[in-house]
Every structure is written in C-alpha cells, then in structure tokens.
Design a protein around this nucleic acid. Sequence first.
DNA 1: TTATTGTGTGAGACCGGTCTCTTTAGTAAT
DNA 2: ATTACTAAAGAGACCGGTCTCACACAATAA
Lengths: 357, 357
Amino acid sequence: MKKTAPKTQSITVSDVARAAKVSKATAARVLGGYGVVSDMIRADVLAAAKILDYRPNELARSMTTGRSGIIGVVVGDIENPFFSLAVRGISDAARAAGFNVILANSGERIEDEKTAVRILIGKRVDGLIVTPSESRDISHLRDIHRSGRPLALLDRGLPDLGVDTVTIDDRGSAMRATRILADAGHRNIAYVTAVEGHEYRDLAQIYTSSVRERIDGFLTVCRDAGIERPERYVRLGATSPVEAGRVADKLLSGPDRPTAILASDSVIALEIFRVIRQRGLRVSEDISLITFHNADWTSVTTPPITVIDQPVYALGKSVADLLIRRLKGETRSPERLILPTTIIERGSVGPPSNRGR
Amino acid sequence: MKKTAPKTQSITVSDVARAAKVSKATAARVLGGYGVVSDMIRADVLAAAKILDYRPNELARSMTTGRSGIIGVVVGDIENPFFSLAVRGISDAARAAGFNVILANSGERIEDEKTAVRILIGKRVDGLIVTPSESRDISHLRDIHRSGRPLALLDRGLPDLGVDTVTIDDRGSAMRATRILADAGHRNIAYVTAVEGHEYRDLAQIYTSSVRERIDGFLTVCRDAGIERPERYVRLGATSPVEAGRVADKLLSGPDRPTAILASDSVIALEIFRVIRQRGLRVSEDISLITFHNADWTSVTTPPITVIDQPVYALGKSVADLLIRRLKGETRSPERLILPTTIIERGSVGPPSNRGR
DNA sequence: TTATTGTGTGAGACCGGTCTCTTTAGTAAT
DNA sequence: ATTACTAAAGAGACCGGTCTCACACAATAA
C-alpha cells in the first residue's frame, strides 16, 4: 500500500509508466495524446495515471514543443476601465482558442514596458499584445518581431512597425466630437489628455499615436470652424486622477477658461466633472463636456454625459483573434484594423455661456 | 562572419560558452549569477552574451529550479472595479518582490474556477491567490494545498481551509451601513447582492462567505431595530449589470417597495441608481441608498452616494505579501487578516418617504 | 516460403538551463 | 621538495516532457 505522494514531489510520466508496466515513451504517448497506442495499453496507462493523480508539467512540455500556450499582454493601466474591458475581450478570445493570458502593467512608462516585454519573452510566451506607450523607442518591440514571435498592437499604431494592429478611429472620433461642440457655438474648446508632458507646443512632441491623432482631429475641426490658435487649449499631463484634477483645476481657474471640454478618457472626464462641480459651475449650462469611452457612470450623472462610444471589448477580441490566427500558422501581410465609433449624445453639451463677453 | 540568428532559433548558454571559449558550466554560472567565477572569465562571457544577444530561457530555468517566479491569480470578474483595483495591489506587490502574475477570470463559475486552477498548477506557478466562488466544492483548492504550493484567499474566507486569508470586515460593515439606514427611520430596507440564486430563504443557501456575512450582519441589525421579516427584502441574482437592473426594477415596481437599499458592490449600485431615476424617483428623498465599494463615480452623482469604503488596494497587496512571505520560506500557521472599513457619509440617505402609509 | 508493408512498443537523444562532482592549478605550510 | 588546502573551471547528470529511430511481430503480397 502506498501513501499519498511525498508532498512537493510530483508524479511524472516515468512514474505512470512504471506503474502501468510500459515504457516511458508509451506512457508519454497516451498522456500527451500523440502517436499511436493500442486501446488496451491506453486504458492501462490512463488507469495508472488516475490512481497516481498524474498532472502534466506544462513547463517541461513547453520546453520541448517550444510552445507555451501563453499570450503576453502589456497594457498601460489595468485599473482604467478602458483597459479592463479590452483585456476581458482578449482573455475571452484567448481562452476560446485554448490560450492563457499573462498580464503586465506598464504604467505607461517605457522602461517598465521594456522590462515587461523582456520578462515575457523570457517566459517564452507564444505571442504578445502590447499597447506601446510611445513611438520613439520601439527597439524592444522590434526584438519581439525578430525573435520570431508574433506581436500585435492594441489601441495604438506604430507606422514603422509592420505588425497586426487594431485601433479605433481616433482622428475621426475626435473630429466628430469637436464638431458637435463647435456647432453648438463654442469657440473656446479644450482637449485634455493623459500623455506625459507639460505644455503642448506641437504634434511632433506627442509620441503616442492615438493621442496624436486625436489632437490632430481636434485641431483640424477647430481651425475649420475658424477658431484661432486652438492649440492653446490643449492640455497634457492628466496621467492619473490626481493629476487630471490638477490639470482641470488649472484649466478652469483662469480668466479665459474654455466653454467646452473634450476629455480623452473616462477617468479624466470624471475628474473634470468633479472640478466643474466644485467650482460651482454647471455642466452643459456653463461648461459643455464630451468624453471618449462610454463608461457606465456617464449615463447616470446629472446631466448625463455625451460620449464617444468605442467598441472596447471588440478591440481586445479583434486583436487577440488576429494574433491567434497568426499563432495557428496563418501567414499574411500585417493587417491594420480601424474600428468605428459612435457618438452617444446625452445632456452635457449646450451653447456657450457668455459671462459678459 | 555570422549572420543574425536564424529566426526562431535562440541563443543558449552553450552558444555563449562556445563563443567565450569556456565550458557550458562556467558560462551558466556567469549568466545565471550563481557559483563562483573569476572576474576575467566573467567579463569574457558577458561580452560574448552581449554580442550574441543572449536571453535566458526562463522555462528551462524554471524546470530545473522548480520555481517559475509566477503567482497565479483567479478572480471572479476582472471588469469589476473592485477586482481591478485588488489585482493592481497584487501586481504591485508581486513585481516589487520579483514575481510575475498570471491572471484568470472565473466569471464566478465554479467549473471555470477549477479549470483555471488546474491550468495554473500545470504551468507550475509558485503560488496561487483565489477568490473562491463558492464554499461547497473546494476539492481543487485542497489539491493546491496538497501539491505543496501555497494558496491564499482573497476577499472570501473558507473556514474549512487552513490557509492565509485576507478579507474585509463584511459583517461589521453591513451592520454599520444598515444601522445608518435604520437610524434614519427606515423599516423597509433591501439588500441586493450578486450571488447566484433566485429567492432568498436561508443563510445556509449562501455559499460565498462574504455574501453570507453581509446578509447576516444586515439581518441582525434589522432585527435589532425591530423590523419584522427583514429577509423578505434580500435579493440575490444581481450577477451582471443587466441582471442587476432586472432585480432592481422588480424590487422597485411592487406596491411595497423598500424605502432604502444597501447594494453589495458599485456595479449593482449603479444599476439601482439608474432604475431609481428611470422610475422618476429621487435618491435620498424617495429611496435611500448605500453601497459597498467607494467607486470613483459615487462621489459625483446627484446626490453623491454614501459608501462603505473598503481598502481594496491594500486587500490585494496584503494577500500578495502574505503569499510571497510564504514563498520565501516563511513557515507559520495560516493567518486570517480582516481589514477594517470606513463609511463615507454623503448625500444618499434621508428619512423614509411615507407614500400615504 | 520469402519478401513487403504496417502497427505498436521500447530505447534513448534532446530541449536549455541548474547543480553536483571531479579535475586542475595556484598558494601556503612544513 | 613535498604535502595540504583552496579557488576556479570542466564534465556530465538531471528536470519532465517530446520525438526520432530501431525493432518486434503480425498481416498481406509475391
């Protein structure tokens, strides 16, 4: 009679083989589900495995096959609902295809992103999905590609990198949202975004493609509407709730505060909303507000907030599907998917307040 | 002259050893950072590694050392801000200690939870953090423990399982929140929670410890306040935004609708808030509302919502720290941490409306 | 009957690291 | 000069799987 397995020591194919009185190779064939084995022996091996409570060591398996069954995902900030939802899309797609996901947070810091990528490659993930935090330094992404592992980009494109990419229509979305504000009569429209930086000077200073596209769209529509120097109302640095609050506060404290604001994500919008309230102003009457991302809360505020509704779950799912197809051997030239958005008009946009101008 | 590495073929210690003209063992000592090597040889090996762009294969390393440097995390729903934040706490603690996190979603389904655990064990994670979706079937959790890998429980305890556990003070929190409502004069108080199930009958029917504790606290205070049959207002099944909306709608449509509601998480609270509005009712004046989890949006609604503020980030960080200490060899009897909560009183609680009673 | 083909099983190399054990060389002590 | 000891490097087993190849044996074809 045998007692339970001596704790940390796990059961291997050899153990099963010995118990079933067959060779290691044969046991491995049964347990690994490959090759050809007679039904009788198969039954014996499975019985032995059952009794011993055999569990395959995926690590060892991965080492010989070269495949780990893991997809590495590097996102900017998992706390941001935008990313949580996208990750959910990725996870679902991955699981459906038999892959696991290992998640890393870059905090939008390029150094942390590089470290994460290095570690994931070390872990021999089969492929990677990254939201590159900037476009200047992408050597680590080239490395992935060079190492033969497929890479796919989420939410942000890199023109220099020929890999599968899924983004939303950033430029178009920003344009439509800005046009709504301009059509409502606004001439002092601000755009608040999360990217690192102090003062906005120039598009060339922005190294995150989605941010650049949005600012570009915003400025284009502003200029079309005859607004002068719209760039004076572009605000960077809203990289966290606290920072976003600071930026909003500064924006709204000056004598020439804007009459409308476009926010680049729901976390920022929430802080702007809060500051507007704190200053005794009213959304829509005093300040119009539109934000990217149809976060759940945007529909229950007073007034509810007009949003750019992005297909976030689909974004994650699409990029994962693209990657998985490639992992399954599909070879084709890199695809660049741009998902359309819709604008949900609610009650946060009104005509500009005059404040005695 | 050598061309760049033939794609999928990566550089190994042997390659480096050959290039540096030393034995594989010596190169491994340098590259693995163990054993003792002379400075001259070390420099040679590092130089060769640099030139060849050597990257260690963590898989192979893990196989011999038996340690993967990965912590497996299984949560109910990563989309829920509660879990996102807790996972953030875990990730930060893990990274600080040199561990990586591999994340799996159970969707609160026990079968998916079991699958996730099985896969993670197969991947030879060093330890696991799980939010058990129910207490009836915990054989897979016992297995983890038996396999010698440390396990820690997050947010939900299992009395039968002697493992490190970090929860919040569920019973006490529910009691204090309920008391606020009772003290305001409410006699018809509802508790809406996410657990699977149709009608509430009995505490024994609830298999999630946190949910049970909260309901227990809620009922206790209700009874202390002389409320009869408080259990008639306990509502289960708010397992998704859509379901939560359905539950809330039903709760508020009857003739004897409650005058106050306690919600078990912010996702549910949001849907309740939405339904209250839709029905033309006012929060605080017509229906009082308190919710677990100080979600960001709860402070910007009109009125802002009174919440039970849970130290969610700390919850994740603590459980990860506990697990990591054990991974580093600490042996001690299992610890059960119960983190305190505070109630942030805002504007969503008022006296009960009389509606002609 | 002998050659041919095919099926099922066993033996052992291999993946890329770690780690133990042995060998070598250099220094100090007697 | 001989012995004793220590530091540094090498040889090779090992982790737990996969996979190639060799081989035994049965069935079929010549």
